[in-house]
Amino acid sequence: MNTLTAHGRDLFLSLLAQEGVTHIFGNPGTTELAIMHALNDHKDLSYVLGLQESVVVAMADGFARASGSLTACNVHVAPGLGNAIGSIYNAYKSGSPLIITAGQQEQGHGLTEPLLYGPMIDMAQPVVKWAYEISRIEDMPRVIHRAAKIATTAPTGPVFLSLPGDILNQETQIALGLPTRVNTVGRPTDCSLEQLTNTILASKSPVIIAGSEVVSSDAQNAVATLADTLGAPVYQQTVPSGAHFISEHPTFMGSLTRDQKRVRN
């Protein structure tokens, strides 16, 4: 198992790289300076600067959707997290695998209510799969590995981690551990597939509704082939969170209307 002596800031970046992260999107402030300094020694990570937190999270969300890979995003303390909540909500509903972090004031300072301090875990919890503040540097490897595992396990989605300044600047000798993943790929039973096939074949005018799972499963071409075979029109889900079907395909009819009478007809 890989062991190194490092500050929390370097440990954090090494663990992200170990989890397959290649890009960090961010809008840094004073509590994130330790991470910015450590990036000089992590050439395998690309930092993408944004000037407002909602835009930063939206960029990370788009990158995660387009690449299908785990992506990191860093915002600035409680006000920055507040700015980002709307975009985090979008990522949550879209199932984007993001590790969102924010620098926090050094532990113990919360008692004096310092500038820009806030209860970030409570703020983030409603719009992420998991939220946690790292209070011991010894816990960082398993926290980062757990965060990556949760973010990439279906249903995928963002997680949030609070990074106190004293943890980022502390030095220790520690084992990195290893990433783990949950394989959620499944296949319906033969009986279920046969029943579905018979239902489709018995249908007089089948319609395909393409949802976000088509994209997350990289199944756009497979759905297009099915549409060609059946001669069935294809609609996107009523409130699309992206492009869920090939827009140039001749069977594509656009988004499904919200008018329930038209849907039934």
Rank of each mutant, 00 (worst) to 15 (best):
residue 38 A to Y: 03
residue 66 A to Q: 14
residue 46 S to N: 13
residue 36 M to F: 04
residue 46 S to W: 06
residue 68 G to Q: 04
residue 73 C to L: 01
residue 64 A to N: 07
residue 31 T to Y: 03
residue 54 S to A: 15
residue 42 H to K: 00
residue 20 G to L: 08
residue 76 H to A: 08
residue 38 A to D: 06
residue 72 A to Y: 02
residue 48 V to D: 05
residue 36 M to W: 05
residue 54 S to G: 13
residue 48 V to H: 08
residue 28 P to Q: 04
residue 24 I to T: 04
residue 60 A to K: 01
residue 55 V to E: 09
residue 24 I to C: 03
residue 58 A to F: 10
residue 28 P to N: 06
residue 69 S to D: 04
residue 64 A to S: 15
residue 40 N to G: 13
residue 68 G to T: 03
residue 33 L to C: 07
residue 33 L to M: 13
residue 77 V to R: 09
residue 69 S to H: 13
residue 78 A to H: 10
residue 53 E to H: 06
residue 58 A to R: 06
residue 71 T to Y: 03
residue 68 G to I: 01
residue 61 D to H: 07
residue 50 G to C: 11
residue 34 A to T: 06
residue 37 H to Y: 11
residue 28 P to S: 08
residue 57 V to M: 03
residue 53 E to Y: 10
residue 32 E to D: 14
residue 25 F to Y: 12
residue 69 S to R: 13
residue 55 V to G: 14
residue 70 L to I: 11
residue 76 H to E: 00
residue 41 D to M: 15
residue 61 D to T: 07
residue 45 L to A: 11
residue 37 H to D: 13
residue 28 P to E: 05
residue 51 L to W: 14
residue 52 Q to E: 12
residue 60 A to Y: 01
residue 46 S to H: 10
residue 64 A to Y: 06
residue 61 D to I: 02
residue 35 I to R: 06
residue 67 S to G: 12
residue 59 M to N: 11
residue 41 D to S: 15
residue 25 F to L: 09
residue 25 F to H: 05
residue 38 A to M: 09
residue 76 H to L: 12
residue 28 P to Y: 01
residue 32 E to C: 06
residue 28 P to F: 02
residue 56 V to L: 04
residue 75 V to T: 04
residue 25 F to T: 01
residue 57 V to T: 10
residue 39 L to E: 06
residue 55 V to F: 14
residue 25 F to A: 05
residue 62 G to V: 09
residue 22 T to G: 09
residue 56 V to R: 01
residue 25 F to W: 07
residue 43 K to W: 05
residue 78 A to V: 12
residue 56 V to M: 05
residue 57 V to W: 02
residue 56 V to P: 02
residue 56 V to S: 05
residue 69 S to T: 11
residue 50 G to T: 09
residue 46 S to Y: 09
residue 66 A to Y: 13
residue 28 P to C: 04
residue 60 A to Q: 03
residue 69 S to A: 12
residue 19 E to Q: 15
residue 37 H to L: 11
residue 46 S to E: 15
residue 24 I to M: 04
residue 73 C to E: 03
residue 31 T to K: 00
residue 54 S to N: 14
residue 20 G to H: 05
residue 35 I to N: 01
residue 43 K to V: 12
residue 30 T to H: 04
residue 43 K to G: 12
residue 55 V to D: 07
